[in-house]
């Protein structure tokens, strides 16, 4: 029983963290068929900016998070204007933007490395204490992560469903030509989506680093996991991505308990490959659309 509570508690935390960064990737892919390989570097950037704001500038936690979101949002915007926009008309856009963002990610990661050094640092944004369920300690940090993640997902759902900007994003993702014929300026939508994705990456990066510490290359594995989640859900499917993130978080936590941490990712991936052989467009996949 206690084991089950432990697995569920840590699985939900993992799933919530994955979901936040996965939503951003799914929105970007859904809108402009772009796999942003600089996402991992944005996770790290968000974590380090929060660290910098809190320790060097002496900002309170909320301001640190806000600053991280702003910086990563602007970084997303720059990626759109400097890399994606010039290539949008190209026939090989998907391949080219993939390679270009690998390059951008490498630059960003190594700049962080130059500025903050290679040694691991603890994320200052962390709450102490724990809640005891049965005989299981659930750290308050995990509960905070879960709470913030749920809140953010609600905000994203609200924006997508109830705001003019959200309707434009959904329309663009579902049919690019039709969206333009409704009077939507899709270039603006692309820019907005990359900004949102960057801001979400910042939050996700802060969450991840609050549990496992800051390293310049900390974003690599979480990014790969987020992409794997997107793939399982069917690329571009936002709600499927949230569901898949939570399921995979729980699964990872279970695998970690049964087989040990070092094999969790490998086993997870083999499961994903099996899923893809079974359903090549992802579990919930039809095509790439932002589903409501």
């Amino acid at each position: 029983m206690d084991v089950l509570v432990q697995i569920i508690a840590s699985g939900l935390t993992l799933g919530a963290m994955y979901a936040i960064s996965t939503i951003g990737l799914a929105l970007v892919y859904g809108s402009l068929n772009m796999l942003n390989m600089a996402h991992g570097a944005l996770l790290a950037l968000g974590g380090y900016v929060c660290l910098y704001a809190m320790t060097v500038l002496g900002f309170p936690a909320v301001a640190g998070v806000a600053m991280a979101m702003a910086v990563c949002g602007i970084a997303g915007l720059l990626i759109y204007h400097l890399a994606a926009r010039p290539m949008l008309a190209s026939r090989n856009f998907e391949t080219q933007i993939f390679i270009a963002t690998i390059g951008i990610g490498a630059v960003l990661e190594n700049v962080i490395l130059r500025v903050f050094g290679p040694q691991p640092v603890a994320q200052p944004l962390k709450v102490d204490g724990a809640v005891i369920i049965g005989s299981v300690y659930v750290p308050n940090q995990n509960i905070l992560i879960l709470g913030v993640a749920v809140l953010l997902m609600a905000v994203v759902a609200f924006v997508l469903n109830r705001t003019r900007m959200g309707r434009a994003i959904r329309a663009t993702a579902q049919n690019r030509d039709a969206a333009q014929l409704m009077g939507i300026r899709i270039g603006k939508v692309y820019a907005q989506v990359l900004m949102i994705s960057g801001a979400l990456a910042a939050v996700s990066g802060i969450m991840i680093s609050s549990l496992s510490g800051l390293l310049p290359n900390m974003g690599g594995d979480p990014m790969l996991k987020a992409f794997v989640i997107c793939v399982v859900a069917g690329l571009g499917n936002v709600y499927g991505a949230v569901a898949a993130a939570i399921v995979l978080g729980l699964l990872e936590s279970l695998i970690q308990y049964v087989f040990g941490v070092q094999y969790s990712f490998a086993i997870l991936l083999m499961l994903v490959i099996a899923v893809l052989i079974w359903r090549p467009a992802g579990l919930f996949g039809r095509t790439q659309v932002v589903r409501m």
Partner: peptide, 24 residues
């Protein structure tokens, strides 16, 4: 495992497979 999938899926899966081999 990968080649029946569409372009971006192939890129992600092959990268993930490479990473798994590395982690193992």
């Amino acid at each position: 495992a990968c080649l029946r999938l569409r372009g971006p899926y192939v890129a992600l899966l092959t990268l993930a497979i490479a990473q798994v081999i590395y982690l193992v």
